[in-house]
Amino acid sequence: MRILVTGANGYLGRAVVGALRRAGHDPVAMTRTEMPCGEQVIRVADLLDGAELRKALEGVDAVCHLAGLTRARESLVQPLRYFQVNTAGTVTLLNAMDAVGVPQIVFASTGAIYGSPEHQPMTEDTADAPPHPYAASKLAAELAIFAQAGTGRLSATVLRLMNVAGGADIDSSRLIPRTIAAAVDDSVLEVNGDGKAVRDYVHIEDAAAAFVACFGRMPQRGEARRYIVGSGHGTSVLEVVAAVEKCTGRHIRLLHKPPAPEPLTLISDPARARDELLWYPACSGIQEIIRDSLAASPNG
């Protein structure tokens, strides 16, 4: 299958392109700017430019839509930018797909849409309660996808990703890269509150494998499905610190800041993805994630 991958030069995009190719698909990498292509087929298009998208979609069978803005705190001060890129960009892509007759999409969404539910672990039946514009913009994009599928012109799968980690993750806003940097640089790691907040980390390769699994089991036209993609178990901030210390052999100095207004525990139940997509988080243990992150780090 020839699959256009939006956001192909991002952290998740690079992993998904590689996983699709290894599975025998023909991924076409869509980026906003020119980049060294190597063996990849590169198409340059802006997610908000319908004409560019229609050109990028020529000759493809399906879309893996990963492009978007992802920083929750940033979305609080730039909400319109997040709705423009994540929601309006997805609508523009759907219009372009409809215009050129591309009938299948797999969309990267976020488990942040569930907010802070009391009942854990979270399932696909957990009520939506987006706590910030980032999550709200992704939910709005999901609703547009489901509505378009309801017309009978689209087959869609939505993956709500938990905390993707491991590999060459250089995003210093995320906990694991920050913790590794503190160990390598012997710097202080700032921690909100007591460090007992628990999150669900899924290895980047497991996340990429979930997208591959979707393309092997796409629903019929007129149908849309949603799955949570997570490890199914939680790891606290202090447990992440301990895992990095164990893997590096270095002590990490902590500076405890005032607690942030955030949920104590967020854990997923990926049973539906396991049962229907035959997907399983094979390498999402925290020690494996940390070891892989260190191996990919230039200073590891």
Rank of each mutant, 00 (worst) to 15 (best):
Y114N: 09
F107E: 05
G193N: 06
Q148Y: 07
A136Y: 06
G150H: 00
I204H: 08
F146R: 15
L139V: 10
L175H: 11
A140R: 00
E205P: 00
F107C: 05
N163F: 14
G115V: 01
S155L: 08
R174I: 12
T92L: 09
N163S: 13
H203A: 08
A207I: 11
S172V: 11
A207N: 06
A183C: 09
R160H: 14
D128W: 13
I204Y: 11
N163Y: 13
A141Q: 05
H119E: 13
M122S: 15
M97D: 04
P131Q: 00
F146K: 13
S187L: 02
L143K: 09
N192F: 14
A144C: 04
E205Y: 04
T126D: 06
T110D: 02
S155M: 08
D169P: 00
K196H: 10
A140I: 02
A210G: 09
A168K: 04
D194W: 04
H119C: 08
A182N: 11
I113G: 01
I105R: 09
L175W: 07
I145H: 03
T123P: 15
D194F: 08
P121G: 01
P130H: 00
M122W: 14
Y114A: 06
A144H: 01
G166P: 07
V102T: 12
V158F: 06
A149Y: 02
V164S: 03
L154M: 11
F107K: 02
R174M: 15
F107I: 02
P177S: 10
V191Q: 04
T92N: 10
L175T: 13
H132Q: 12
D169Y: 01
P133R: 05
Y134H: 07
E124W: 05
L94Q: 09
Y201K: 00
A213G: 14
G111V: 08
A108D: 06
E205S: 12
G111M: 04
P121R: 00
G115M: 01
G152I: 02
I113P: 00
L93E: 03
F107Q: 00
G111W: 01
A208C: 01
T123G: 15
S187Y: 10
